Amino acid sequence: MKKIVLKKFLTGLMAAVAIVAALGVQAAEPFKVGFVYVGPIGDHGWSYQHDQGRLALEKHFGDKVKTTYVENVPEGADAERVIRNLAKTGHDLIFTTSFGFMNPTLKVAKRFPKVTFEHATGYKLSKNVGTYISNTYEGRYIAGFTAAKMTKSNKIGFIASFPIPEVIRDINAVQLALNKYNPDAELKIIWVNSWFDPGKEADAANAMMDQGVDIILQHTDSPAAMQAADRRGAFAVGQASDMSKFGKKAHIFSVVDNWSPFYIKRVQQVMDGTWKSEDHWGGMAEEEIVIPEFSDSIPADIVAEAQALIAQIKAGTLHPFAGPIKNKAGELIVAEGEILPHADLAGINWFVEGVPSEIPK
């Protein structure tokens, strides 16, 4: 009888130990974070820089966090499938990092209300979906100022990806700087209808230089334009990440997206239960847009003035979209003393006075 009781006791004890062990394993499960990229992490631009933010997460949180990424995801039905798969496989927080992922993110979020989502460059929120964007227009304004001061031909090139608000904002910021600092400068725009296509980007850069452009800006993700400028003796500004190594002679500076602070903050908030759906804009003041260094090829007085403008942007005393601002038709859109609000910047679909082309349909 004692043996039977002892056997039952040991069996129960082993079961209890197994349960405790299982609970221990469950408690030790890392917080899972997923990332969806529109391009390859080796684009040396947009997706590369988001992935640097992912790596910063891993370094900051250690084994408390496990990250996953999917690269080269087309905007559309494939995006919805990828996002849904991440939600189904236990990811607690999912960052979707391109404008065309907006509606797929919202559709998946509705089906997975316990998962938190953050969508980059979009404008639609829901209970478990937040949006975030960097104030790239601040860096573009500095690029426009520098180009206005340095150009010899008065022809500035801008390689544009798609006619979405983010790109339109940045073109406008460049033109506003040209209007103020060199009204004789002309902005030439080529739309390549791609985020990452080195061939198209190089062709666009060469076509611009054939037309006399001597400084090239871009809102595309490869360093191909920088490399083309370097081969032909023009100057260029890097996009999203530091592109200095791709054009030692051409590179004057890069407008760098620093996603690490935001990613670390939002992951911590979800882990703490303090996350709330919001529309986040981060710029130079938050160190989310940075210009790591200026090339020695820029005259010292221009560098000093550019740094002064950056300091003013950080302090809030200078805003690229402060009035008066007119549209292409000459209509006053932003009065003097006013600033175009984020809500309007988020959906901007008009060019400022001076932009030579129309927005493609």
Results as ranks from 00 to 15, higher is better:
residue 38 V to M: 10
residue 38 V to N: 05
residue 38 V to A: 11
residue 38 V to Y: 06
residue 39 G to L: 12
residue 39 G to M: 11
residue 39 G to P: 09
residue 39 G to S: 13
residue 39 G to W: 07
residue 39 G to D: 13
residue 40 P to G: 15
residue 40 P to W: 09
residue 40 P to K: 14
residue 40 P to V: 15
residue 40 P to L: 12
residue 40 P to R: 14
residue 40 P to E: 14
residue 41 I to M: 12
residue 41 I to Y: 08
residue 41 I to W: 06
residue 41 I to N: 11
residue 42 G to T: 15
residue 42 G to H: 05
residue 43 D to T: 09
residue 43 D to G: 03
residue 44 H to Y: 11
residue 44 H to M: 15
residue 44 H to N: 15
residue 44 H to C: 12
residue 44 H to R: 15
residue 44 H to G: 11
residue 45 G to M: 00
residue 45 G to L: 07
residue 45 G to E: 06
residue 45 G to N: 08
residue 45 G to W: 01
residue 45 G to K: 06
residue 45 G to P: 05
residue 45 G to T: 06
residue 46 W to I: 00
residue 46 W to G: 00
residue 46 W to F: 05
residue 46 W to V: 06
residue 46 W to L: 02
residue 47 S to I: 05
residue 47 S to N: 02
residue 47 S to M: 04
residue 47 S to D: 02
residue 47 S to Y: 02
residue 47 S to G: 01
residue 47 S to P: 04
residue 47 S to H: 04
residue 48 Y to S: 12
residue 48 Y to H: 14
residue 48 Y to K: 12
residue 48 Y to G: 10
residue 48 Y to A: 14
residue 49 Q to D: 11
residue 49 Q to E: 15
residue 49 Q to N: 13
residue 49 Q to C: 10
residue 49 Q to G: 13
residue 50 H to A: 02
residue 50 H to T: 09
residue 51 D to M: 09
residue 51 D to N: 15
residue 51 D to L: 08
residue 51 D to Q: 14
residue 52 Q to C: 13
residue 52 Q to K: 13
residue 52 Q to L: 13
residue 52 Q to W: 13
residue 53 G to L: 06
residue 53 G to M: 04
residue 53 G to Q: 03
residue 53 G to W: 01
residue 53 G to P: 05
residue 54 R to P: 03
residue 54 R to C: 04
residue 54 R to Y: 04
residue 54 R to I: 04
residue 55 L to D: 14
residue 55 L to M: 15
residue 56 A to F: 04
residue 56 A to R: 01
residue 56 A to I: 10
residue 57 L to E: 02
residue 57 L to F: 03
residue 57 L to N: 03
residue 58 E to K: 07
residue 58 E to L: 08
residue 58 E to P: 01
residue 58 E to V: 09
residue 59 K to W: 08
residue 59 K to C: 00
residue 59 K to H: 03
residue 59 K to G: 08
residue 60 H to N: 08
residue 60 H to G: 05
residue 60 H to Q: 12
residue 61 F to E: 01
residue 61 F to V: 01
residue 61 F to C: 04
residue 61 F to D: 00
residue 61 F to H: 02
residue 61 F to Y: 14
residue 61 F to I: 02
residue 62 G to A: 02
residue 62 G to N: 00
residue 62 G to P: 05
residue 62 G to S: 07
residue 62 G to R: 02
residue 63 D to L: 08
residue 63 D to K: 07
residue 63 D to H: 03
residue 63 D to G: 03
residue 64 K to S: 09
residue 64 K to G: 03
residue 64 K to D: 11
residue 64 K to H: 06
residue 64 K to Y: 03
residue 64 K to E: 07
residue 65 V to Y: 06
residue 65 V to R: 00
residue 65 V to H: 04
residue 65 V to M: 02
residue 66 K to F: 06
residue 66 K to H: 09
residue 66 K to M: 11
residue 66 K to Y: 06
residue 66 K to E: 10
residue 67 T to K: 01
residue 67 T to G: 10
residue 67 T to M: 01
residue 67 T to D: 01
residue 67 T to R: 01
residue 68 T to Y: 13
residue 68 T to I: 10
residue 69 Y to C: 07
residue 69 Y to I: 11
residue 69 Y to D: 05
residue 70 V to P: 01
residue 71 E to Y: 05
residue 71 E to R: 14
residue 72 N to D: 11
residue 72 N to A: 10
residue 72 N to I: 08
residue 72 N to K: 10
residue 72 N to R: 13
residue 72 N to L: 14
residue 72 N to C: 08
residue 72 N to Y: 11
residue 73 V to N: 05
residue 74 P to G: 07
residue 74 P to Y: 03
residue 74 P to T: 04
residue 74 P to M: 00
